[in-house]
């Protein structure tokens, strides 16, 4: 079992013929991901990387049975691409694009509310179920099929956690990169909830960062409903207030969204919080024993 993506997913790539889209589609296919096609407007009917290209997501759903989409469309057009996927009936939409205007995401989020789909991202590395499907830009080889679920707002920091979990002799059920923007489709709590309900997942690594209240929300949910051990880390313990640290969403606004405040509430909710990012893998191993 796994969550969101698996070997049975039918995945399309929006922006498959672009530079980024092409490169990462190739990597996904090489990993063994079930990519069934791609979408680039006005290039429908062509083949790219031996996959059919469609003009619209609706065509890809009708003709290739797509149920999952990964988006590599540039920022000015990405919000539109997400809504197109939702409208066509795609169930899992993974948006990799970084730099989407916040007001666009306000509209997208509202648009998705009464539609039966889940958005992961934007500005995220994607979702991977090791050995089954790599839907995003993460390096496949560091992952190992197993039972640890990973939720993170970051890219390379997630890889670091994955690598440590793998080196600790464990593997991953599904790793969900929820994204570093202020408005993302799937919150930390929602991703944790998915993994908590996944029978195969035995432990969860939850990686947050400064800014916003998603980690506190997840921590409170875990305290109330959690059934599996959670190891947590918050990046940005040394970040100054009011400065954006790379990610659009990584900015300390008040006293509640500092790393210290988040770590405190996570600890109070029974999460095994590590101070050093170097201790994530070993701590998970200890906790499981």
């Amino acid at each position: 079992m796994s969550v969101l993506v698996s070997k049975d997913s039918r995945i399309i790539v929006q922006g498959i013929t672009g530079k980024e889209g092409s490169f990462h589609t190739e990597q996904m296919i090489e990993y063994g991901t079930p990519v069934v096609g791609g979408v680039t407007p006005k290039k429908g009917g062509q083949k790219h990387l031996d996959r059919p290209v469609f003009n619209t997501v609706a065509n890809a759903v009708e003709q290739a049975g797509a149920d999952t989409s990964v988006i590599f469309v540039p920022p000015p057009f990405a919000a539109d691409a997400i809504m197109e996927a939702a409208d066509a009936g795609i169930k899992v939409i993974v948006c990799i694009t970084e730099g989407i205007p916040v007001q666009d995401m306000v509209k997208v989020y509202a648009y998705l509310q009464d539609r039966d789909c889940r958005l992961v991202g934007p500005n995220c590395p994607g979702v991977i179920t090791p050995g089954e499907a790599k839907v995003g830009i993460m390096p496949g080889f560091i992952h190992n099929p197993g039972s640890i679920g990973i939720v993170s707002r970051s890219g390379t920091l997630t890889y670091e956690a994955v690598d440590q979990v793998t080196k600790a002799g464990l593997g991953q059920s599904t790793c969900i990169g929820i994204g570093g923007d202020p408005i993302v489709g799937t919150s930390t709590k929602e991703a944790v909830e998915l993994l908590m309900n996944d029978p195969l997942t035995t432990g969860i690594v939850m990686i947050g960062e400064i800014g916003g209240g998603m980690e506190a929300e997840a921590a409170n949910w875990i305290k109330a409903y959690g059934t599996k051990p959670v190891v947590g880390f918050i990046a940005g313990q040394t970040a100054p207030k009011g400065r954006k640290m790379g990610h659009a969403g990584a900015i300390i606004g008040g006293k509640d969204d500092t790393a210290a405040a988040k770590m405190k509430i996570m600890e109070a909710c029974g999460i095994h919080v590590v101070k050093s990012p170097a201790d994530i893998g070993q701590t998970m191993k200890l906790v499981l024993n």
Binding site: S154, T156, L157, G180, A259
Partner: peptide, 25 residues
Amino acid sequence: MVNGAGLAMATMDIIKLSGGEPANF
């Protein structure tokens, strides 16, 4: 000097835990 914003913040944290103070992100 780090690749990725999250890892960069985490690296700053490591510097602090090692007894230093980060000079930059």
